[in-house]
């Protein structure tokens, strides 16, 4: 059986799709909820939600990134107590993953990465700005924009090399895109 046939026979199985989505949702929740880097200067945290979304979009494709990115980050909000953000986080990070996956579907290039970063930032930061603005005012919502841009920047700077490193260390992952 050729590589192409093997790839399609695995990824076309509904059981494979269910398994990959479940594992990636769990890992997205853990990357968002547990793995954080404290920023001493601002007393804030970097979480790795955008890193795992970029990783998923590049290695598993846009549909997986939409579902795993959306549900995984929404679950992290649910478990962390930020329950009012759940539907908006699902939308913001899900669409962010879809955009990155669609742009970087065929080839990873510098212009492609820059375009994916721009699209991801506009979608994610834009949805959060609109929802936060409606909920507690656009003045405070605007304060959050730079932070969301930085999160996306971390997504590109860490997520893209992470996808390359995992592909290199575990080559079978190249057949998992659907």
């Amino acid at each position: 059986m050729s590589d192409k046939e093997n790839k399609s026979s695995i990824t076309n199985l509904p059981a494979f799709k269910i398994a990959s989505l479940a594992i990636l949702i769990a890992i997205t929740t853990v990357f968002t909820f547990i793995i954080r880097i404290p920023i001493v200067q601002t007393k804030g945290y970097f979480n790795f939600s955008d890193v795992i979304i970029f990783f998923t979009a590049i290695t598993f494709g846009p549909v997986t990134a939409l579902i795993a990115g959306g549900i995984g980050t929404a679950l992290a909000d649910l478990l962390g107590g930020f329950v009012w953000w759940v539907p908006f986080t699902f939308l913001a990070h899900g669409l962010q993953g879809l955009a990155v996956g669609l742009i970087l579907r065929k080839k990873i290039s510098i212009p492609g990465i820059l375009l994916a970063f721009a699209a991801a930032t506009i979608i994610m930061a834009g949805i959060y700005f609109i929802t936060a603005g409606i909920m507690y005012g656009f003045v405070l919502a605007a304060v959050e924009i730079p932070w969301n841009i930085l999160q996306n920047l971390a997504g590109v700077i860490v997520g893209v090399p992470l996808a390359a490193a995992v592909k290199k260390a575990y080559p079978p992952i190249q057949n998992y895109k659907w």
Partner: peptide, 20 residues
């Protein structure tokens, strides 16, 4: 992060087979 992801992704074929 690389080690965690490889460990997690290796679970997919086993879980997929169990579901199948």
């Amino acid at each position: 992060l690389v080690s965690v992801l490889i460990h997690a992704i290796k679970l997919i074929p086993a879980l997929s087979m169990a579901l199948e």
